Measured scan of single mutants.
Amino acid sequence: IDVRFTVNGLDVTVRVRTEEIAERVKELAKNGVDWREIQRIAEELNK
Rank of each mutant, 00 (worst) to 15 (best):
V7Y: 11
I21H: 07
N46L: 02
R36M: 14
V16P: 00
V25T: 01
L45T: 02
V33W: 10
E19I: 11
N31Q: 15
I41C: 05
N8P: 03
R24C: 13
T18L: 03
I38N: 00
W35I: 14
I38M: 02
I21C: 02
E44S: 05
V14W: 04
V16R: 00
D34W: 06
G32A: 08
R24V: 15
K47M: 15
K26Q: 09
V33C: 07
V25N: 00
D11A: 13
L45C: 03
V33M: 11
N8R: 05
W35A: 09
N31F: 09
E44C: 09
E19T: 10
I38F: 02
N46W: 06
T18Y: 03
I21Y: 03
G32V: 06
V7M: 10
D34E: 11
V14Q: 02
N8K: 07
E27W: 13
L10W: 10
E37G: 03
K26G: 04
K26H: 08
N31Y: 09
E23M: 12
I1T: 06
V3A: 02
E37F: 04
K30N: 12
N8Y: 05
T13P: 01
D2Q: 09
L28A: 04
V7P: 01
K30C: 07
K47I: 14
A22L: 05
E27G: 07
V14I: 15
E19V: 13
N46T: 02
T18G: 04
E43M: 10
E19W: 13
R4E: 09
I21L: 04
E37I: 11
K26P: 00
K26Y: 11
I38K: 00
I41M: 08
I38T: 01
V16K: 00
E20I: 08
R40P: 01
T6F: 09
Q39T: 11
D2E: 15
E23G: 07
V14D: 00
E37V: 10
I1L: 11
T18E: 02
E19N: 11
A29Y: 15
D11N: 12
L10I: 15
L28E: 02
V3P: 00
V25M: 06
A42S: 06
A29V: 15
A22C: 04
T6Y: 08
K47Y: 12
E37N: 05
D34C: 09
N31E: 13
T18A: 03
A22Y: 05
V3T: 02
E44Y: 11
A22S: 05
K30V: 10
R24K: 15
E20P: 04
D11Q: 14
T13M: 10
L10K: 14
W35S: 06
I38G: 00
E27N: 09
I21A: 06
V12A: 04
Q39E: 10
L28Q: 02
I41Y: 07
V16S: 02
K47G: 12
